[in-house]
Measured scan of single mutants.
Amino acid sequence: EKIKSDFFELLSNHHLDSQSRWSKVKDKVESDPRYKAVDSSSMREDLFKQYIEKIAKNLDSE
């Protein structure tokens, strides 16, 4: 859970929106230790998708 929250924090530093693509974001964040803390690339992508869904819901509710 800490790894997930750290990863979300990392993503939040990059001002993403619901149109952001993992392939582009990954290049910007892959040197960060919070990125490396997530064991697998599929898990990183899953967390990215969860984060994008979360910010999309937040935008819808505003």
Rank of each mutant, 00 (worst) to 15 (best):
K49V: 10
L11C: 04
K4F: 08
D32E: 02
W22L: 05
F8K: 02
S42K: 13
V29Q: 00
E45Q: 08
D39S: 14
S23F: 11
M43I: 05
E9W: 03
S61I: 11
S12I: 02
F7D: 00
F8Q: 03
L59T: 15
A37L: 04
P33Q: 07
L47W: 10
Y35F: 15
F48C: 04
E53S: 14
M43S: 06
D39H: 09
S40W: 00
K24F: 15
S23V: 14
S20Q: 05
S23R: 07
E53D: 07
S31N: 12
L10N: 00
V25N: 04
I3F: 05
L16E: 03
E53W: 07
K26N: 04
F8G: 02
S23E: 14
D32P: 00
E53G: 08
S5P: 02
L47S: 01
M43C: 10
D6N: 06
N58M: 07
S23P: 10
S40E: 09
D6H: 04
D60W: 04
F7N: 01
W22R: 00
K54Y: 08
L10E: 01
W22F: 05
S40A: 05
R21L: 11
V25H: 05
S31L: 08
D32F: 00
K49W: 06
Y35Q: 01
L47V: 00
D17R: 02
S18H: 12
H15S: 12
V38I: 12
S12R: 10
K54L: 11
K28E: 10
E45L: 06
R34E: 01
S20G: 04
V25W: 09
S31W: 06
M43F: 08
A37Y: 03
Y51H: 05
K24V: 14
H14W: 11
I52F: 06
S20E: 07
L16Q: 02
H15Q: 14
D6G: 06
E62H: 09
S31F: 10
D17W: 02
E45K: 07
Y51T: 02
S12E: 13
E45H: 08
R34T: 02
P33E: 08
H15T: 12
Q50F: 05
E45T: 04
Y51G: 02
I52S: 06
F8T: 03
A37H: 03
S20A: 08
N58R: 12
L16G: 01
Y35T: 02
Q50N: 04
I3M: 09
F7R: 00
L47M: 08
K49D: 10
L16R: 01
R21M: 12
Y51M: 02
D60M: 06
